[in-house]
Simulated scan of single mutants.
Amino acid sequence: MSADPAAATRPRNRKQLIVEAAGRVFSERGYHAASMEQIAAGVGISAAALYRHFPNKYALFAECADLMADRLVASLDEVPSGAGLADVLTAVTRVTVAHRASGGVYRWEARYLNSEDRCRLRAKFGHVVGRVDEAVQREYPLPDERLRAAAALGAIGSIAMHHTSIAQRRADELLLASALRVAATDPAASRGGAPAVELPARPVPRTRRAEILAAAVPLFARDGFPSVTNGQIAEAVGLAPSALYRHYPGKVDILAAACLQAAGLLAQGVDRSLHEVSGPHEAIVALAATYVAYSFEYTALNSVAEAEVAGLPADLRRPVVLAQREHIAVWEEQLRLARPELDPRQARALVHAGFGVAVEAGRALRWQDSHDHREAVTALVVGALGL
Rank of each mutant, 00 (worst) to 15 (best):
R246Y: 15
V237T: 05
H371P: 11
S102I: 08
R181H: 06
A151Q: 13
H99Q: 09
A256Q: 09
S370I: 02
L213P: 00
R29C: 15
G23K: 00
S370V: 04
Y248L: 11
E360R: 13
R363H: 12
A101R: 15
P218V: 05
P187K: 07
V309D: 07
V204F: 11
S178K: 02
D77P: 00
V43N: 04
I39V: 09
F125Q: 06
R52I: 15
S158K: 01
S81P: 07
A123S: 12
A110E: 14
A171C: 10
F54S: 05
H371N: 12
R336C: 03
H163E: 14
A221R: 03
S75E: 03
W367Y: 14
P249W: 02
P187D: 07
E375H: 11
S75A: 11
G154V: 05
T90R: 14
S303G: 14
A305V: 10
Y51T: 11
R12H: 11
L387R: 07
A289Y: 15
P203I: 01
A257S: 13
Y294L: 07
V204M: 10
A267Q: 06
P187Q: 00
S46L: 05
I328S: 09
V377D: 03
E360L: 15
L213H: 10
D77N: 07
G23E: 00
T290R: 02
G157R: 12
Q168P: 13
P203E: 03
L255V: 14
D133V: 08
N230W: 10
G383E: 11
G30A: 04
P249L: 03
R29E: 14
L72Y: 02
V132S: 03
V43G: 03
A215C: 06
R206I: 01
R138T: 07
A216D: 12
I39R: 10
A8V: 14
N13Y: 14
A329E: 13
G192W: 06
Q137N: 11
R318Y: 15
A69E: 01
A288M: 04
A307C: 07
S2Y: 15
P218H: 01
L312W: 08
G30D: 03
V25S: 10
P218T: 09
A210E: 04
A8C: 12
A288D: 03
A98S: 15
F220H: 05
I166R: 10
V95E: 03
L153C: 08
A379L: 04
G42S: 09
H127V: 10
R107Y: 06
T93P: 04
D117N: 03
A310R: 15
S303R: 13
L50Y: 09
Y51W: 07
G356D: 01
P344T: 13
A384N: 04
H247G: 10
G354W: 12
A263M: 15
S75Q: 09
V128K: 02
G130I: 11
K15E: 09
E109C: 05
E297W: 14
H162R: 00
L72G: 08
V25W: 05
H32G: 02
P203G: 00
D66C: 06
T9M: 14
D343E: 06
A288E: 07
L180N: 02
N13C: 08
A353G: 05
A47L: 14
R10V: 10
A22L: 02
A101T: 07
D253H: 15
A167L: 09
G362R: 03
V95M: 00
K124Y: 00
E306T: 09
A258M: 08
G42F: 08
L17A: 12
P11I: 05
H373G: 12
R71P: 04
R122T: 09
P340N: 09
A152S: 14
S178E: 00
